[in-house]
Nucleic acid binder design. Structure first.
Lengths: 238, 238
DNA sequence: CAGGCTCCCTAACGGCGTTAGGGGCGGCTT
DNA sequence: AAGCCGCCCCTAACGCCGTTAGGGAGCCTG
């Protein structure tokens, strides 16, 4: 019944009561949660549905997990499971840009991923590995430890904030059945029909504000930030 | 019973059934939601509690509001109700910095405000007014319309992303009863006790990564961004 | 064979968003 | 004055949710 997009999980034979469920680990739970997330969205992700996904009743989850919050932590880490660091070639700019672009693409690829990740305080092991590597490259580029830490935070805030804003119309489109394009057009229309006397700029720039080329918008902001970071380095390091 | 922090709302005499409730407008609803948010947090904000806050039963809210989502839209706008634009003095940098600092301070001041605002697609009238004014100043500084739109988006993403990350430990502290300082210390401890062979940077920079001076971290990122924006302008405009 | 550990179950609690259907009230038309 | 209508609230209920209590089957160890 569940669309198996991940590699072999869940042999879903209903086991007899009391029988230990084979291969039901926290890891399998996380992957099941990921499948439910993809299918139902974050709002539709419930203990009961995740339990059903692994062929079990809801109360049984509490053997493996303290509560839903902890399941979401697992899910959070599972979202980063197949993220990869960009190749270690080129200057620091291209490497950092690669990091941010990949992070964004990774979040965009999974439904409601930004909402899951946003404001979760403990980074999972997979994200830790990426942070470690990113910090390494920042140090190598010549940034001080304190600056490197702040830069990592800055980039994380930007990417998460950006994807959060760009992904919520996708969620709305998913809910209402409209296409992503219609949602953007509706937003533009909302700006364009504002009282022009009171909001001259919003009306005039409606298309600029809602233009659907979010890739370009993301890269624009990213390049501005990278420009600003470059100024921290001695000129010979660029 | 409710802490009345806003000016006179809600004459809470229990009205007879069928009696029109005096002064129960969408606006009053939004302010009531704001009080409930402050008291219970976003997770604890329910239709029933907001209804009780205005002295009414839950089903009655659906006369004024299509559903909870729409109530959250009202709440979103109410959060921006008393936000003010920074003074129109100084160069574009200080004005833009003022915008971002005020926006951050405003979100931080209200419990869970970042979560409410994050990923809400339709800006309310109060936010529209601020956007209009901000765009105006960007144009005046010499940025093109397209750039101004993107810059507005960029700054919004950064501030929202930043506050989202910084406010969730506050929420956790509120829930667990611990202080904000303890949460930060716990985070630092988590980094410091990582396996040093695998995560040398995270271990070494634990204090840099979790340093509690978030104001400095915010300003650091903000100044980097502003540096990057300055490079868009012709040199005589700075 | 006894005991204990593991892992699942059923049943239930209170709370949630939301809808259906009903009723009193105030203000309008006749 | 009588009737009507639209406003605004109510009670009751639906199906979902997270979570807990208590129990029982299968396995591993002694």
């Amino acid at each position: 019944m569940p669309a198996d997009e991940d590699d072999a999980t869940q042999p879903p034979g209903p086991t007899r009561p009391g029988a230990a469920h084979p291969g039901l680990t926290r890891d399998a739970l996380a992957r099941a949660a990921l499948r439910v997330l993809e299918r139902e969205g974050l709002a539709g992700l419930s203990m009961r549905k995740v339990a059903a996904e692994v062929g079990v009743k809801a109360a049984s989850l509490y053997w493996h997990v303290r509560n839903k919050e902890e399941l979401l932590d697992l899910l959070n880490d599972a979202l980063m499971a197949d993220a990869e660091a960009p190749p270690r070639t080129g200057d620091w700019r291209t490497q950092l840009r690669g990091y941010c672009r990949r992070y964004r693409a990774h979040l965009l690829a999974k439904r409601d991923a930004a909402k899951v990740v946003a404001g979760r305080l403990a980074p999972g092991p997979h994200l830790l590995r990426l942070m470690e590597d990113q910090l390494d490259r920042l140090r190598e580029a010549g940034f001080s430890p304190a600056d490197s830490a702040m830069i990592s935070y800055l980039l994380g805030a930007y990417v998460q904030g950006f994807v959060l804003q760009e992904q919520s119309p996708m969620a709305a489109a998913e809910t209402t059945g409209a296409g992503r394009r219609e949602v953007a057009d509706a937003a533009a229309e909302r700006f364009r029909t504002l009282p022009a006397a009171e909001f001259p700029n919003l009306v005039a720039m409606a298309d600029d504000l809602t233009g659907p080329d979010l890739d370009a918008r993301f890269d624009f902001g990213l390049d501005r930030i990278l420009d600003g970071l470059a100024a921290l380095l001695p000129p010979d390091r660029r």
